[in-house]
Simulated assay, not measured.
Amino acid sequence: MEITTRSIRSLAYRCEEFLDDRGEPLSIGYSGSLALCILDAIYSTGSHPTAVDNVADRYIARRGRADGAKSLRYSIAAAGGAEVWARKVIRNLKPANVQPGAMLRAEVVDRATRLMADHDIDTVDDLLAAVGDEPSTGRHANEVARGWWALPSQKSGISWRNLLMLAGSDHFEIDHRVQGYIGEVAGFFVVTTDDYVLELIDATADFLGVEGRVVKQIVWQVSHRRLLPDPKRESFVFPYGLEDELEPEAEGWDSVFDRELCAEAVDRNSTLGPEEDLGSDWMTPYSRPGTTGAAPF
């Protein structure tokens, strides 16, 4: 399916929220600490982003931002084991799954550090070098990836792909969440094949003047709810027909986001109705202020 100007600008608008004025990503990553990558990757599945931020912040308060996998393992051992470490250092006793008697995620973290030690991996650079260009999923996946999936409650591979995104890897898997997010951005009648997703991400990166890896990281973290967009901003949807107001050519995308032009197009298509009617419930899975729901850890 053809990539339209509208779909590129729509994804660019979503990504722009997570770029600073210099085009640097505001998405989550820890290029200087494999310890923080491991913590974030394991605690982020099924957790509210605030809970994961709290885990990382508490570890940083104790250990700083430069620990590798070896230092993380030493930290757990020095505290007296995973349970004591979970209670006293990161103050999070969340289990690895919802089954009665499930081990703590802190224990999974400890086992992940042992896996890294078995493969002589301590830093983010060590991890990226060990994974290299080998597949990170599937039957021919890298040996480190297979070892990670064998960790308790990690066989889905989501935490492994989280780890790679946090470490800044070029690996990017298009799963059902990514496809669903891109489908919402591009329009309900778009068939989001893998080729379409990759082509749209590349075109959007070119439009924004950033590396494709930056857009991939934002798309992954938003679609997997590690990043929560501003709900008011997220409700804005480019009207169908906006591409008629813009240049139809796919060559030489202007890297400057034209807000005035988009605003004029919205005014001319004001019959679409209130912005809040255009939102998508699945994009706001967590309780908001004033609603009921479990508080984050």
Rank of each mutant, 00 (worst) to 15 (best):
H140D: 14
D40V: 04
T271N: 09
G138T: 03
G32I: 02
E107Q: 15
L127D: 14
A106C: 04
A150S: 14
H224L: 01
P135D: 14
V55N: 08
L163N: 00
L261C: 07
D20M: 09
M103N: 04
R213F: 02
M283Y: 09
I174F: 00
S10C: 01
T123D: 08
W149Y: 13
L227V: 10
H119R: 14
I28H: 03
F172R: 01
C15S: 12
R58V: 10
P49H: 02
G147F: 04
L228S: 09
A129M: 11
I201C: 01
R288W: 10
T45D: 09
A56E: 12
S287C: 06
F189M: 12
R73E: 11
Q217C: 11
P248R: 12
T45I: 12
G183N: 12
R22C: 06
I218R: 02
G46Y: 03
N97F: 05
G168I: 07
A141L: 06
Y43M: 05
A82M: 05
R14A: 15
G29P: 00
V84T: 15
F189E: 13
G23Y: 01
L278N: 12
R226S: 07
A51H: 11
A265S: 15
P231G: 02
N97R: 14
D267A: 10
P285L: 05
M283E: 11
A117T: 03
V178Y: 08
E199S: 10
L127Y: 12
G293Q: 04
D122L: 06
A130M: 04
A41R: 05
G252F: 10
E243V: 06
L115Q: 10
L200W: 00
A82V: 03
A79Y: 05
G273C: 12
G68L: 00
G68A: 03
V185E: 03
Y43W: 13
M283C: 05
H176N: 11
S27V: 01
G64E: 06
V109I: 15
P285V: 07
G252W: 08
D202G: 09
G273P: 09
L93P: 02
R213W: 03
A106K: 02
L104E: 07
S44F: 00
A69N: 11
E260P: 05
W220I: 03
I3V: 15
V219S: 00
S287E: 03
A167D: 05
I38D: 05
R111M: 14
F297L: 09
W85R: 01
A82K: 08
A167F: 02
I121E: 03
V215G: 07
S71A: 15
R6A: 09
S156Q: 08
H171Q: 13
